[in-house]
């Protein structure tokens, strides 16, 4: 009787262990399946998100191309009407050379060949004590003025054009091939939209504080910003190094 009871007890324990194993295995399998499902779900969501970004980028590109094409189309129309006008004038024997003169004047201003004036901003840039100014500070100010909408800029009466070098040597800063001592102040002038003068001064003050924070206290930068009723910015001579084009050929040649 005792042996039979003991045998039953052992069978019961084995059954319980078996049941437990089955239960745990089932839970483990379910958990693994759920894990896989979850991973798949997240992956699918990521793909959907990527598709959405892709579409936005494409749509932005399409918009940008469409806007630009419309602008180029207008440009061609303008050129076409100029040709037509000139052809008519040729037929009538009435060529107006004033058109070329006016175009030459307009493009000279754009190219920086002509001296210009209007209301603007003056920034005097220097260093306290014996420190010498670096080219990067001048570039910071000039680039900031450019980004803020300045239409003409000069540094120490040198007109800043797209190909103006601002490069430091040991004692000087070279601008358009002309050397200016790093120990002296640099005067940067800019003609800016009159209605934006105040906001530009404010932005330059922010830049000044940012530059001051970058430099240690022994090398304090000094920057005086002022609004001007009239700023005169000289033109750059055509033979300036900034206008060198000896390495440029017209693209239509040899094509």
């Amino acid at each position: 009787m005792g042996i039979f009871k003991q045998d039953n007890q052992i069978k019961g324990v084995v059954m319980r262990i078996k049941n437990s194993i089955i239960k745990y295995s089932a839970i483990t399998i379910i958990a693994v399946i759920l894990g896989i499902a979850l991973a798949l779900q997240i992956k699918t969501s990521n793909i959907a998100a990527h598709e959405s970004i892709d579409l936005t980028e494409l749509q932005n590109n399409v918009r940008s191309y469409a806007e630009k094409n419309a602008e180029l189309n207008d440009r061609n129309k303008e050129l076409y009407s100029e040709i037509e006008k000139l052809r008519n004038a040729q037929l009538e024997g009435d060529i107006n050379y004033q058109d070329i003169l006016a175009e030459q004047e307009r493009l000279s201003v754009f190219a920086g060949l002509t001296a210009v004036q209007n209301s603007g901003i003056t920034v005097t840039l220097g260093m306290a004590g014996q420190s010498m100014i670096t080219d990067s500070y001048i570039r910071f100010v000039v680039n900031e003025l450019n980004a803020l909408g300045a239409q003409a800029i000069s540094i120490n009466e040198q007109r800043k054009v797209a190909t103006t070098e601002i490069r430091a040597s040991s004692e000087n800063i070279i601008i358009n091939g002309v050397a200016y001592p790093r120990s002296e102040d640099f005067i940067i002038k800019a003609i800016v939209p009159p209605e934006q003068q105040d906001s530009i001064v404010l932005a330059l003050e922010t830049l000044k504080n940012a530059l001051k924070e970058q430099i240690d206290s022994e090398q304090q930068i000094e920057m005086i910003i002022s609004k001007e009723q009239k700023v005169v910015i000289p033109g750059l001579n055509e033979d300036s190094i900034a206008y060198k084009t000896n390495l440029l050929n017209p693209a239509e040649d040899n094509e």
């Binding site: 307009r106 001296a115 003409a152 003609i191």
Partner: peptide, 8 residues
């Protein structure tokens, strides 16, 4: 681009 530039 040259709206505010008057010839000096």
């Amino acid at each position: 681009d040259i709206e505010y530039l008057k010839i000096a």
